[in-house]
Design a protein around this nucleic acid. Structure first.
Length: 435
RNA sequence: GUGGCUAUGGUGUAAUGGCAGCACAGGAGUUUGUGGAGCUCCUAGAGGCGGUCCGAAUCCGCUUAGCCACCCCA
């Protein structure tokens, strides 16, 4: 290895090695399956978009846009950004392709890498993956509930047990300005008692003081007017309908009146899904409750219009894949990776090595996984390799066998060996692994 | 952007200023065509740069990276 230069993954980014692929593949397959059933079509949008799409869509005052975007200038002087989240890109696609002309609702899903420039820590990376579901053109809370249900199902299928769904409504542009004012009026005389962060939040986005973890702030907010008491009629009804749908589906939700989300575009429904396990564990460590959501989302009725489309209601959510994978590992819910091969082909001598290539192809056609070690000549090492791979049978094709047109089938756990005709070996193996 | 902790073969670790050692993994063997145990041998290491010192993995400075926390978020 070169002593001077040591290349490694950029900060906050990781290789997903062959031995870890099965977990990701399992998640993709599950998501495809659930999405298909619920009528969501897969969409893949570019990893880079016009940076202005996020500045306008995600919101110029959000951290994501203010300090976490990877932007780049092309030779043609376009300013592009590595996507920090999915929603604006999908909204752009909805508008660009005139999906409004299609029968609504339009249900879309996707998954892939996202990029945010921030300091990496537990469950937080600069390149990470999300699974994302979006619905356009339907204002009913039924769709909000369905999205929550879909993510709940996905986590359930991955064997998560203690899931909790936090829901809230943050109103719309009818009632939110009104409530914001009310909250500000309440907070203003109490500013000095807030923590330093909340004093800043009070100026920038008073709603965010609601989910502060500082005890003194929590004391203050407990007396604060609650948004759900001051929703406008439409938002109130929408929220009520959502809760009824959730009751109907038996989802274990919890109304958290202090749940507000950082993105500017949310209206009405907001929700997050946590594993209670993470909460317990962080409590044990004596730390402040860690709120690493597995899933987060909500309704964004104003975004399509904001990005240049018609006034189309929409709702969506995204799950953090690395967080899911990390938690699966922590809770030891990680399934053992499947054995890579069922049988092993050991060969001795040039002639038999030549026959091996063709034989392997016969097994591939029969859909039987065969491992081999064609680079090695010693039978001893080949058997050792077969043993390590935990295959049930090893085929031994030696010089003698090649001349006789036969092959040895060795049962690894007992050491029993049968000699069969080379022409029949696929059939013979099939017979044995079926048992 | 701020703060705390850390950095030794591929992996996990040891050695408190004096020969970098161990385990696992990997490779070659263990009498020539039969695995799992044992044994023998081999491969492979101080993140980088500088400083102190006769001598640095060890002390100091800077830097890079990792982990964790704040902020914020999936």
């Amino acid at each position: 290895m070169n002593k001077k230069v040591k290349f490694q993954t950029p900060t906050g980014m990781h290789d997903i090695l062959p031995e870890d692929q099965f977990l990701y593949e399992k998640i993709w397959a599950l998501v495809d399956d659930v999405a298909k059933f619920y009528g969501f079509g897969k969409i893949m949008t570019p990893i880079v978009e016009d940076a202005a799409l996020y500045e306008r869509g995600t919101g110029g005052t959000t951290d994501i846009v203010e300090k976490q975007m990877y932007t780049l200038k092309t030779k043609g002087d376009d300013v592009l950004a590595l996507r920090p989240e999915f929603t604006p890109g999908i909204v752009r696609s909805y508008i660009q392709h005139g999906m409004i002309a299609l029968p609504q609702p339009i249900k879309l899903y996707t998954y892939g890498p996202l990029f945010r420039y921030e300091h990496p820590q537990a469950g937080r990376f600069r390149q990470f993956h999300q699974v994302d579901f979006e619905v356009f053109g339907e204002q009913s809370a039924a769709l909000d509930a369905q999205i929550i249900q879909i993510f709940y199902i996905i986590l359930k299928e991955l064997k998560f047990s203690h899931l909790i769904i936090e829901v809230n409504s943050i109103g719309d542009n009818q009632c939110r300005p009104y409530y914001k004012k009310m909250l500000s009026n309440y907070l203003r005389p109490r500013q000095t008692s807030l923590c330093a962060d909340c004093r800043r939040r009070f100026r920038e986005n008073p709603l965010r003081t609601l989910d502060c973890k500082e005890e003194k702030c929590q004391r203050i907010r407990s007396q604060a007017p609650q948004f759900i008491d001051h929703l406008c009629e439409e938002c109130k009804n929408h929220f009520k309908a959502l809760l009824e749908f959730l009751d109907e589906t038996d989802l274990p939700y919890h109304l958290d009146p202090y749940l507000v989300r950082g993105l500017d575009y949310y209206t009405k429904t907001v929700f997050e899904i946590f594993s209670e396990k993470t909460m317990e564990q962080t409590k044990e460590k004596g730390e402040v409750l860690q709120r690493n959501a597995l899933v987060g989302g909500g309704r964004y009725d104003g975004l399509v219009r904001l990005l240049g489309g018609k006034d189309v209601p929409a709702s969506g959510a995204a799950a953090g894949v690395e967080r899911i994978v990390g938690l699966l590992r922590e809770m030891q819910l990680v399934p053992k990776s499947e054995p890579t091969a069922e049988i092993f082909l050991a060969q001795l001598g040039d002639l038999s090595k030549k026959k091996s290539l063709k034989l392997l192809e016969d097994f591939r056609k029969a859909k039987i996984q065969v491992a081999e070690s064609l680079g090695r000549d010693s039978l001893r090492t080949q058997l050792a390799r077969a043993d390590k791979l935990k295959v049930a049978y090893t085929l031994i094709l030696g010089q003698k066998e090649v001349l006789d047109g036969t092959i040895v089938i060795r049962k690894m756990d007992t050491g029993e060996q049968d000699t069969v005709k080379l022409a029949n070996v696929v059939e013979e193996v099939k017979k044995r692994i079926k048992k």
